[in-house]
Computed example of a mutant assay.
Amino acid sequence: MPVILAIESSCDDTSAAVCVDGVVLSNVIANQTIHEAYGGVVPELASRVHQQNIVPAVQQALQRAKVSKNDVDAVAFTRGPGLLGSLLVGVSFAKAFALAKNIPIIEVNHMQAHVLAHFIGDNKPSFPFLCLTVSGGHTQIVLVKDYFDMEVVGQTLDDAAGEAMDKTSKILGLPYPGGPLIDKHARLGNPEAYKFPEPQIPGFDFSFSGLKTSILYFIRDNVAQNQDFIAENINDICASVEGRIVSILLNKLKKAADHYGIKDIALAGGVSANTGLRLGLKEMGAKYGWNCFIPEMQYCTDNAGMIAIAGYHKYLKGEFAEQSVAPLARMPF
Rank of each mutant, 00 (worst) to 15 (best):
G318E: 02
P2L: 01
M165D: 04
A61G: 01
F77N: 09
E44M: 03
H185T: 01
N31T: 13
L62P: 02
I262H: 07
T78Y: 07
A273H: 14
V23P: 07
V142R: 04
K66N: 15
V67L: 06
V41N: 13
S92R: 06
K95W: 14
H118M: 10
N233P: 05
Q112I: 08
H259G: 04
H35A: 04
R187D: 09
K263G: 02
Q63K: 14
V24P: 10
F204D: 09
A117N: 13
A268S: 15
A231V: 02
T14R: 05
L88E: 11
A57H: 01
G40W: 04
V58L: 09
D122F: 03
I4D: 02
A46T: 10
N274D: 12
M306W: 07
C292N: 12
G285R: 06
S92Q: 09
Y176C: 00
V18T: 08
D166S: 03
S272D: 09
I245Q: 05
E232V: 03
N291V: 07
E283Y: 07
H35K: 06
N27F: 00
M150Q: 15
V91E: 05
V3W: 10
V24M: 07
N70L: 15
S86F: 02
V223Y: 00
H259N: 11
F77V: 14
L277S: 13
V241T: 07
D122R: 07
F127P: 09
L25C: 06
P125V: 08
G276F: 12
Q227C: 01
A256L: 10
M150D: 04
E319G: 02
F229E: 01
V24R: 12
N190D: 15
R278C: 15
G276P: 13
V144P: 01
N109V: 08
S47W: 02
L328I: 03
Q323F: 14
